[in-house]
């Protein structure tokens, strides 16, 4: 017999099953060879080392932003600013990757550190506005996304742009700045190690330190935290700094790990994807690994599908929307939980 406490696990599973079912349905409607196409979507990411590599490469930025958003959501902060910070820190890192001359140890270190710190500081602004004056962090963070994008694009177009290149891209990064690959035959880079270490650290921070404890209590019940003597305004600013640092590092690592020039002319979307990753992970740092891999997997599946069959990869955004709508739906399957509770109450 199921108990109400397993509810969340069952619900997450149900959401994934439903969203995959919708994916199959769309494929069936659109494709001339549905069975083959579904096969590609599901299995092709595992078919070669290169494809597996693609999944992991895709998962790296998702883990960064997923982790950043998880911490914010943990503190009950509705801040979607990871998007803009991811982008802007990428720009900052690019500047240093282009203009600094350092050895291949220091160069990425300095460039990533700069991107991360800029990210932390930018993220702190909505945090401070929220903590001090209760300015809605959601609206300010959304506005910041657009502002940072505008400034970043300006920097790209006016200061970094390589006129000799055919597309709207920056000058080439110095070789020394780029992150090294860690698995032959793939483009998986040292960013994977960085993000996994970061996730483990975040886990320890959240569950094993007093600061993490303050963060969790503030998120669950700010009144309770205040009553217990915690300085909740400080906690809110702290979580913004940390999340901005992580999101900024994500942008920096992505740029140095995957590209040789800066070339984002629109927001890459990883920040909002991070919200999806965080939701699937139930805001648990360690679960972020699995949920980012899942999302990366279906995306690479969709990419390969569009290359090898007649269904365009944009299908995945429909699936992502379905996942978000269902995973954050409190009432989804709630009737079932209520029945369990009623039963348990009667038995007690």
């Amino acid at each position: 017999m199921f108990k109400s406490k397993y509810f969340e696990v069952i619900r997450t599973t149900a959401v994934i099953v439903i969203s995959l079912a919708i994916a199959f349905l769309i494929i069936t409607l659109v494709s001339d060879h549905p069975v083959k196409t579904i096969g590609i979507f599901l299995l092709e990411p595992l078919s070669t080392k290169g494809h597996i590599g693609n999944v992991v490469e895709m998962a790296i930025p998702l883990m960064f932003t997923g982790l950043a958003v998880s911490l914010l959501f943990r503190a009950n902060m509705f801040n979607l600013g990871a998007e803009g910070i991811f982008y802007f820190s990428g720009v900052v890192t690019s500047v240093l990757a282009i203009h600094l001359t350092l050895n291949s140890w220091l160069h990425p270190l300095v460039a990533i550190a700069a991107g991360s710190i800029v990210g932390a500081l930018l993220s702190a602004i909505p945090g401070i506005l929220k903590a001090k004056w209760n300015a809605n962090e959601l609206v300010t963070s959304l506005m910041f996304n657009n502002i940072l994008f505008g400034i970043g694009l300006y920097l790209l177009n006016y200061h970094l742009r390589d006129a000799k290149a055919f597309a709207n891209v920056s000058y080439k990064f110095e070789k020394t700045a780029q992150l090294s690959k860690i698995f032959q035959g793939t483009r998986i880079h040292t960013g994977l190690i960085i993000v996994v270490v970061l996730i483990v650290l975040a886990h320890l921070f959240l569950y094993k330190t007093k600061w993490g404890y303050e963060l969790r209590m503030t998120g669950i019940n700010r009144e309770f935290a205040r009553y217990s003597g915690m300085k909740t305004a400080k906690v809110i600013i702290m979580v913004h700094l940390i999340a901005g640092f992580i999101a900024g590092m994500g942008g920096s690592v992505e740029v140095l790990g995957m590209y040789s020039r800066f070339q984002w002319t629109s927001l890459p979307g990883y920040g909002l994807d991070g919200a999806l990753v965080a939701m699937l992970a139930k805001n648990n740092p360690l679960s972020v690994i699995a949920s980012a891999l899942f999302l990366a997997y279906i995306r690479i599946g969709a990419d390969l599908m569009s290359r090898l069959s007649d269904v365009p990869s944009e299908m995945i955004s429909i699936i992502q929307a379905v996942i978000i709508l269902l995973i954050s739906a409190e009432q989804f399957l709630k009737f079932w939980k209520n029945r369990m509770l009623l039963k348990e109450a009667k038995e007690a």
């Binding site: 509705f78 979607l80 709508l325 269902l326 954050s328 739906a329």
Partner: peptide, 11 residues
Amino acid sequence: FKTHIILGGVA
């Protein structure tokens, strides 16, 4: 379904 309105908008 009581999906969070902001996340719904993101979706």
